[in-house]
Structure formats: structure tokens, C-alpha cells
């Protein structure tokens, strides 16, 4: 009896599971469609695209659009391709991510392990930073950058992103360190470790998962940012996103869709790579601190 009922249980399970998989695969395909269109059209000659059949596989395979987008497309005055802007973005993203993550970790450390009067209010104010829309700060920020002599520079842009990112990184690290056993800090104090020694030797080495979250979040946001890049960057410090926009929006000549597609993929690659390399830590880190134990 029980064996028979077990059998039917498995069979119904199999049917439901098949259904679930079919639906999931359909949604996955639908979701992947834009990427397919971009990839396929980035390796076609322009004539194939303008002749219709966006969904078709390329008849003639060419990597020419990729090379053109990278090194010779007309963006701005010189036909430089996206390459210099790519390096602009790197020069902006790496320091901005590093500094905002380290500062967030320090803030989280102080807010949880070196409690002081009104620390929760201070933390609340820092959280508030997460909810300020970008547009509000554009003009004051431009003035500030001007006063600091950083207007139109990559460093200025990095600074803006650091300031904007600290709210988020502080939130992440504070929540992570809130469940970090305070006894460890006390043990280190008794052992004679100072403020920064505890931070570097005890806390940071145990912060892997949340550091990954902070880095992915900051990297994605800063790399993908367009508004600050368009507002604060000079002609020679524009990030990748702004350059891609200039490439696509260029009003002269023929619209080279294959080059545009290739450029868009180039612009999206770094964030994809970061997510693929560190992604499995992402969810783990996001969950850490939210659930006890």
C-alpha cells in the first residue's frame, strides 16, 4: 500500500517538476533574448542588419565591429574608439570602490564595536544618504568639486562616488559587524591590540563575504553610472557609459548598429565578470547578518 502511494507521489512530482522546468526555461530564454540579439548583431556586417532579419544568425561572421568599437569609432573629436574611456572608467571605479569599501568597513567597525553617544542617530543619517536622489546633489556637488579644484577630473568623479557609496557600504558592514562577537574585540583589547590592529588583524580577515557584497554593489553602481559621469567629467575623463552614449547618439554618418552592439557589450563586460567571479559570495554575504547563526 505505502509503496504504491509513494509511486504516485513521485509521478505527480515528476509532472510538476517538468512543468516548472518548462516554464523556467521559457522565461530564461525570453530573458536572454536581448543578449542574443546584441551578440548576434555585433558579429554581422552592417549590411546584414540594415537588410532586416535582426534575429537571424550571421551569414558572414566578422569581429570587425568589435575592433572598431574598441579602438577606432568616432567618439568626441578623435576616432579613438571606447578604449581610452574604458581606462577612464577603470581609473574611476578602482579607487572609488576600494576607498568606499574600506571607509564603510571602518564606519561599521566604529558604529558597532566602539559605541559612542548618538551613534545610532549618526548611523541613521548615514543611511539617509542611501535615499537621496542623485539629481538633488548635482549642482551643490559641482560647486564643491569646483572649490576643491577637482572639476572635470577622474579623481573628482571618484570622490563623488565614494561619498555616495559610503551610506551603502556602512550599512552593509555595520549589519555584518553587529553580529560579529564583541568578545573577540575584547579579547584582542586585553591582548594589547589597538584600534587599527584589531581592525586589520581581527575584523577585516573575517569580512570576506560582506566585502564581496560591498565590492560588487559599488563596482556595478559606479561602473554603470551615467548621470554623474555626464555631469562632472571633462572631455578627457568621461567614463565608459558616457562614451557609449556619445557613440550611439552620434548624429553624423551612418548608424553602425553592429558597432553599437559591440560597444554596449564591452561596456557591460566588467560588471558581468565581477559578478561571475565573486557572485557566489554575493547572496551569502547579503544574507549574513540578517539571520542569526
Amino acid at each position: 500500500m505505502s509503496v504504491a502511494s509513494q509511486d504516485t507521489a513521485i509521478r505527480t512530482g515528476r509532472i510538476t517538476r517538468t512543468l516548472i522546468y518548462v516554464v523556467l526555461i521559457l522565461f530564461a530564454l525570453f530573458y536572454m533574448l536581448p543578449l542574443y540579439v546584441m551578440l548576434v548583431n555585433s558579429v554581422k556586417p552592417l549590411s546584414e542588419i540594415t537588410g532586416g532579419g535582426m534575429m537571424n544568425l550571421p551569414e558572414e561572421f566578422t569581429l570587425e565591429p568589435w575592433f572598431k568599437a574598441w579602438s577606432s569609432a568616432q567618439i568626441g573629436v578623435e576616432p579613438t574608439g571606447l578604449a581610452p574611456y574604458f581606462w577612464n572608467s577603470i581609473k574611476m571605479v578602482v579607487p572609488a570602490v576600494a576607498v568606499s569599501t574600506v571607509l564603510g568597513a571602518l564606519n561599521g567597525y566604529v558604529l558597532t564595536k566602539w559605541r559612542f553617544k548618538y551613534d545610532t542617530i549618526l548611523f541613521g543619517l548615514m543611511l539617509f544618504a542611501c535615499f537621496i536622489p542623485f539629481q538633488i546633489v548635482l549642482i551643490p556637488m559641482a560647486r564643491m568639486l569646483g572649490l576643491m579644484g577637482l572639476a572635470g577630473t577622474t579623481w573628482g568623479l571618484a570622490l563623488v562616488h565614494v561619498v555616495y557609496g559610503i551610506g551603502f557600504t556602512t550599512l552593509y558592514f555595520r549589519n555584518y559587524y553587529a553580529v560579529f562577537p564583541t568578545e573577540l574585540i575584547r579579547a584582542a583589547q586585553i591582548d594589547g591590540a589597538g584600534f587599527f590592529q584589531i581592525f586589520w588583524r581581527i575584523l577585516l580577515p573575517s569580512s570576506g563575504p560582506i566585502a564581496v557584497v560591498s565590492i560588487i554593489w559599488q563596482f556595478t553602481n559606479i561602473w554603470n553610472d551615467f548621470l554623474f559621469g555626464a555631469s562632472f567629467a571633462g572631455a578627457d575623463s568621461q567614463p565608459m557609459t558616457v562614451a557609449l552614449n556619445n557613440l550611439v547618439q552620434a548624429s553624423h554618418g551612418v548608424k553602425e548598429y553592429n558597432v553599437h552592439f559591440a560597444g554596449a557589450i564591452l561596456a557591460a563586460t566588467p560588471t558581468l565578470l565581477v559578478y561571475i567571479v565573486a557572485g557566489r559570495y554575493f547572496v551569502r554575504g547579503l544574507m549574513a547578518g540578517s539571520v542569526k547563526g
Partner: peptide
Amino acid sequence: PSKRNIAMVFQSYALYPN
């Protein structure tokens, strides 16, 4: 604490995990 020449054993042991 570090200058009192004391040592402490904690309830959770507080061993540095790294």
C-alpha cells in the same frame, strides 16, 4: 586592559577565527 597584566577566558572562547 592590556596594561593590567591580566588574561581573560571568555564564555565563547573568543578565538580569532582567521
